[in-house]
């Protein structure tokens, strides 16, 4: 493992799940729970002749950022594309349940300033969703995580970090967008139906999954920032993601709420007005939508540096504040 100082200046996109977990929290504070020494491996993969991983493709644990305990879930794309199976799903459920229980204990012990001492969860996604080798268990694990995200609301802030190689697709596309805040890098990608699946179901005319630029225009960090699905677009370093998390954790929970894109009737109605726009606009490409929001040179957006993008890009107007 690299030294912590070296980790925070490393590329988030290239980093392993364990490097991200260690680098996102304060130096030397990460305690891995359910780590490789515990040998929590899939009982199902060997039946299909597949290799196992001693962490089942997700690094889980707890560290600190300042005074606050911060639980970490970090998916490893190098192991079966970061897909979720029974064991990895259970590890993730365990983290949510621990954070909730710790919150309740802290709230009881420090009724005055619980919100600044309360634990938070950061979830670093790198996954295509359900692991098909144990598909049914993976599916059921997704449902548990959605339930727990809703249970955390108002108690434990949950922050999604998306900027890893595999992106964040399938069921994890809605798990990640259901948290309090989404932070991405330009290289991050988020969606429900992955490019290959759209091509397979609807044909190459609907979506050419070999067109990398098209994939980024449709699912990438800049597009999701313009759509306000991503609230903060940061540089591709572990340190940049970490700094954003630190800033967010210094805010009162009430303030974090405004970064949600779904989770109330008002937000559903706001999204429905976007859907009405989609019906009228019938965009051929995200660039049509960017132009509609007032970006006069949408073709130039993919080439912009982060700083220029943040300064110039026109984002969707938010109706709910």
């Amino acid at each position: 493992m690299k030294a912590w100082e070296e980790l925070i200046s490393s590329s988030f996109y290239e980093a392993t799940a364990r490097q991200r977990a260690h680098g996102l929290v304060d130096a030397g504070t990460f305690n891995e729970l359910g780590g490789p020494n515990k040998r929590l491996k899939s009982p199902h993969l060997p039946e299909l002749g597949e290799a196992v991983s001693f962490d089942d493709g997700v690094v889980t644990g707890v560290g600190r950022i300042g005074a606050r305990p911060v639980f970490v879930i970090s998916q490893e794309g190098r192991f079966i594309g970061g897909a979720v199976g029974e064991v990895g799903g259970a590890k993730t459920t365990a983290i949510f349940q621990m954070a909730l229980r710790l919150h309740d204990k802290i709230a009881k012990k420090y009724p005055e300033d619980a919100s600044l001492r309360a634990p938070a969860i950061i979830y670093s996604f790198e996954t295509g969703g359900v692991r098909l080798h144990e598909a049914n268990a993976g599916l059921l694990a997704h449902a548990e995580q959605m339930e727990l995200i809703q249970e955390c609301r108002g108690k434990v802030p949950v922050i999604s970090l998306i900027g890893s190689k595999v992106g964040c697709f399938g069921g994890m596309g809605f798990v990640s967008i259901s948290t309090d805040v989404v932070v991405m890098s330009e290289l991050g990608r988020i969606g429900l139906t992955g490019p290959e699946v759209i091509e397979q179901e609807m044909g190459k005319k609907e979506f050419d999954s070999s067109d990398r630029a098209l994939i980024y225009r449709t699912t990438g960090g800049k597009h999701k920032t313009i759509m306000r699905d991503c609230s903060f677009l940061v540089d591709d370093t572990i340190g940049a993601f970490r700094d954003q998390v630190k800033t967010l954790l210094n805010m009162p929970y009430e303030q974090l709420k405004k970064y949600r894109s779904i989770g109330s009737l008002k937000l559903v109605q706001e999204q429905l007005s976007l859907v009405a726009l989609a019906a009228v606009l019938q965009p051929k490409d995200s660039t049509d939508v960017w132009a509609h929001f007032g970006n006069d040179n949408p073709e130039g957006i993919p080439d912009m540096e982060l700083e220029e993008f943040c300064r110039k890009a026109k984002l969707r107007h938010r109706e709910v504040e």
Binding site: G173, F174, S176, I177, I190, G191, L192, T193, V197, I198, E201, M202, E206, F207, T218, T219, H223, K224, M227, D229, S261, I262, Q271, L274, V275, A278, Q282, P283, D285, S286, V289
Partner: peptide, 12 residues
């Protein structure tokens, strides 16, 4: 499973 769905965010 469409392009417009992904542009506007079927996940949401």
């Amino acid at each position: 499973p469409g392009k417009i769905e992904e542009i506007f965010g079927m996940n949401k």
